[in-house]
Design a protein around this nucleic acid. Structure first.
Length: 359
DNA sequence: AAATCGGGGCC
DNA sequence: GGCCCAGATTT
């Protein structure tokens, strides 16, 4: 931390020039993205939530889909949560979709359709943390609050050659404070987007394009040759192994699905009735009696196996085709029937989608 | 402070 | 296979 504040002092007298260079670079090189053609708070909010922990290229088609499906916050507020989840399907981090819907209802019904205009006010809404509140306030309402996302943290840590973990709250605070000291030198929304864009296009995680960087001459990491080592991050959690056994039951016009409950992955999404085994060794003969009243009346065959990789979990999924009467099943949740038409299926998660498409 | 939540692109 | 991404929320 000591190192950090020394750097901060050294750079004080160059701040205006640094900001001016970044903004000039941004105005010339920024990508043409749909949410940059407006300052409409609804569009800004939607884009920011969609892009949390998500690359622009991945979020872009979802932004278009949401704008077509829900042109205003009132359309979104009046939709059901299932409709919102369905539009979100495949993007991941599904609590974002539920919070998006909650916030739409709060703004539409309690705030007369108007978003709060300050970071503090915005951060009270579900799904809006420090980053998103600052982003909306600065871009939509011209409020001078710097954003700190993965891009900005990388750029700043290299600028100042910070070797402490950037996910440490104290280090985050220091970087925001440093940025706050220079945000007055530009339009807040442009200032914030310029830093992020620099991280996304030039100050890349690996092999940064320092020769194209508008502030390379002030970059301490470049001067010291440490850019590729930065930013430093704390160690990550290990991957959990899980074994899912899915029961595939369908007839001519219905497919049996249950909705996943809270407190686990894929909350609120739909899938086949499922039994989670405690280990790889746990075999069907052990768990089948737990799922059906009379195993004698069941025909069962292994259809397909997938290994589905997530960030912190590895799902070993087995899909068993089941033939029996529905009354014979012992399920904790009620069974729902849906017409077997792809468009009519509710928001399934990625693994289910993979299985259905493979058949 | 640590754990959890996804999916995809890149090396 | 590991890392990272326009992070937030819960414990």
């Amino acid at each position: 931390m000591g190192n950090f504040f020394v750097c901060k002092m050294i750079f004080c007298r160059f701040m205006q020039e640094i900001v001016s260079n970044i903004v000039a670079w941004y105005l010339k090189n920024a990508r043409d993205l749909p949410w940059r053609n407006t300052r409409n708070p609804y569009s800004v909010w939607l884009s920011e939530v969609l892009l949390q922990q998500t690359r622009v290229n991945q979020g872009l088609p979802y932004y278009e889909k949401f704008i077509v499906h829900f042109p205003t916050i009132h359309h979104l507020a009046q939709a059901s949560e299932d409709e919102v989840l369905k539009t979100w399907q495949g993007l991941g981090y599904y609590s974002r979709a539920r919070n998006l819907h909650k916030t739409a209802r709060i703004v539409a019904e309690s705030l007369q359709g108007n978003f709060p205009q300050t970071p503090e006010g915005l951060q009270k809404l579900p799904g809006l943390g420090p980053y998103t509140a600052a982003a909306i306030a600065s871009i939509a309402f011209n409020y001078p609050e710097p954003v700190l996302d993965g891009n900005v943290a990388r750029v700043v840590s290299r600028m100042l050659d910070i070797h402490e973990a950037v996910d440490l709250p104290s280090v985050k605070k220091g970087m925001i404070e440093w940025l706050r000291g220079q945000i007055a030198y530009a339009e807040p929304g442009t200032f914030n987007q310029a830093w992020m864009e620099l991280g996304a296009l030039v100050c890349l995680p690996a092999r940064p394009l320092c020769d194209s960087c508008p502030i390379a001459s002030w970059c301490m990491a470049r001067q010291r040759g440490t850019a590729e080592e930065l930013p430093v991050k704390k160690a990550k959690a290990k991957v959990r192994e899980r074994w899912f056994h899915y029961l595939h039951l369908e007839n001519e016009n219905a497919i049996w699905l249950v909705q996943r409950q809270a407190g686990d992955i894929w909350e609120g999404l739909w899938e086949f009735p499922m039994y989670e085994a405690a280990s790889e060794k746990e075999v069907p003969s052990d768990w089948l009696p737990k799922l059906v009243a009379d195993p004698q009346q069941v025909k069962i065959s292994l259809q397909r196996r997938f290994t589905h990789l997530l960030t912190h979990q590895r799902i070993h999924a087995s899909f068993w085709k089941l033939s029996t009467r529905p009354e014979n099943l012992r399920l904790q949740q009620p069974i729902f029937e849906f017409p077997l038409v792809q468009e009519e299926l509710p928001a399934l998660h990625r693994l289910m989608d993979k299985y259905l498409k493979a058949n």
